[in-house]
């Protein structure tokens, strides 16, 4: 993807997030965006649908924070 297309993506993301980037830091942050974009290309691999994330939701783990008397956060 060329820089102009990446720039449009970056500008859109900053606006959507509601972040304020000082003018003199905009180029640096755009370069950070390009770095993040490069990392995303590395992890985007076609995997079987059954290939689960590492942090699969486990209700037993969540539950233990809300048991009566535990003082849990939930």
């Amino acid at each position: 993807m060329d820089d102009a297309a990446l720039r449009r993506q970056y500008d859109g993301l900053i606006e959507r997030a509601g972040l304020r980037i000082p003018q003199d830091r905009n180029e640096t942050m755009f370069n950070a965006y390009k770095q993040v974009a490069a990392w995303t290309e590395i992890v985007r691999t076609r995997r079987p649908a059954a290939a689960e994330p590492a942090n699969a939701y486990a209700l037993t783990t969540v539950d233990r924070l809300s048991e009566p008397g535990t003082g849990g956060a939930l």
Partner: peptide
């Protein structure tokens, strides 16, 4: 702030990796 640059699907892809 660079965390705003990561799409949800890419976060999940990273977790699968």
């Amino acid at each position: 702030m660079a965390g705003a640059f990561v799409r949800g699907s890419d976060y999940v892809e990273a977790l699968r990796l």
